[in-house]
Simulated scan of single mutants.
Amino acid sequence: MITFDHYTIRLLELSDLEKYFSLIEKNRKRLEDFFTGTVSRTKTFEDTELFLKEIIQKRYGKLYYPYIIENLDNNEIVGFIDIKNIDWNIPKAELGCYTDENYAGKGITSKAFSLFTDYCFNHYGFAKLFLRTHESNFAAQKLAEKAGFQIEGRICKDYKTTKGEVVDLIYYGKIKE
Rank of each mutant, 00 (worst) to 15 (best):
C97R: 00
E152M: 13
N85V: 11
K160V: 14
A104Q: 14
L143D: 05
V78A: 10
G37W: 08
Y119T: 05
E135G: 13
N89C: 13
I155M: 06
S40G: 05
L72M: 12
F121G: 07
A93W: 01
L11Q: 11
P66T: 12
R59C: 03
E76D: 15
G79E: 12
K176D: 09
Y124R: 07
K58L: 11
K84H: 10
A112S: 10
I83Y: 04
S110T: 07
I175V: 13
F121L: 08
T38N: 05
H134M: 04
E135P: 11
P91E: 07
K29L: 08
F51S: 06
E13S: 10
E46D: 11
Q141P: 09
F113P: 00
L63K: 15
Y60A: 10
I9H: 01
V78N: 10
Y171E: 09
H134G: 07
H6F: 07
T8K: 13
T109L: 15
G61V: 04
F130A: 02
T48I: 05
G125T: 12
L63R: 15
L23Q: 01
R154N: 12
I83S: 03
E165L: 15
I2C: 05
D158V: 05
R132Y: 04
F51A: 08
Q150L: 07
N122Y: 04
T117Y: 05
